[in-house]
Design a protein around this nucleic acid. Structure first.
Lengths: 106, 106
DNA sequence: CAGATATTTGGCTATATGGCCAAATGCGGC
DNA sequence: GCCGCATTTGGCCATATAGCCAAATATCTG
């Protein structure tokens, strides 16, 4: 595996990693309905505003979200709606699943 | 957000998280071409066999891969090929990108 | 059973992540 | 300029990840 291939994998992993957190999935789903400001998004989440802000920054840095300041608020919106397609695949994975070694099955 | 919604997000995040690593993306891509045993997969990666084994276990636990022992070898295969669709979206994200705050820009 | 090969697991360390609080920054109004 | 609201950032701690090596486990062969 050459450096270019490695770089390509790193870049892809960075984007996927940005999606790899329940709170961030929630934010993405919430933004699918349209732009929202940070405070509004925070009310849907059980976490500090600062935490939500950081999650939003992760998604923005990955190129998944964009934001724009309007007045004192900053509105985030989904820049790459294709990520919503991930969910369909995941349902498929879980359906195929049925009895894999989930290991943390209590 | 109720417990059910939280659980749904957790489950989804678990699957995406399994994909959120360059080496694991490499493994998934390699397996797109057909099943492979651990040693074969390891030769394509700059890492210890034990490390690759653990990565494969992560993907298997997420339901993305399945494996089957044949003789002394264990063959892994892609159980949920839909994850390959992630890549297309990621290219789209990167294309939309062009000049976001990558933040780690030296 | 002993030996060889393939894979996984235990143990350990280093680094990355996620969370909170408190403080800083940005913007608008008085 | 000072105050208030919205958001981000710094600092800190706890936990999770990823990696390696060494040891354990599994299968086949003689």
């Amino acid at each position: 595996m050459d450096a270019a291939a490695q770089e390509r994998l790193d870049v892809r992993a960075r984007v996927i990693k940005a999606m790899a957190h329940p709170t961030r999935l929630f934010l993405v789903e919430a933004l699918a309905a349209g732009e929202r400001c940070v405070r509004d998004l925070t009310t849907g989440v059980e976490a500090d505003v600062s935490t939500v802000s950081r999650h939003l920054a992760v998604l923005r840095n990955a190129g998944i979200l964009a934001c724009e300041r309007r007045g004192q608020q900053i509105f985030y919106r989904l820049r790459a709606p294709c990520v919503l397609g991930f969910f369909g695949c995941i349902e498929e994975v879980l359906a195929t699943d049925e009895a894999p070694a989930t290991e943390s099955r209590t």
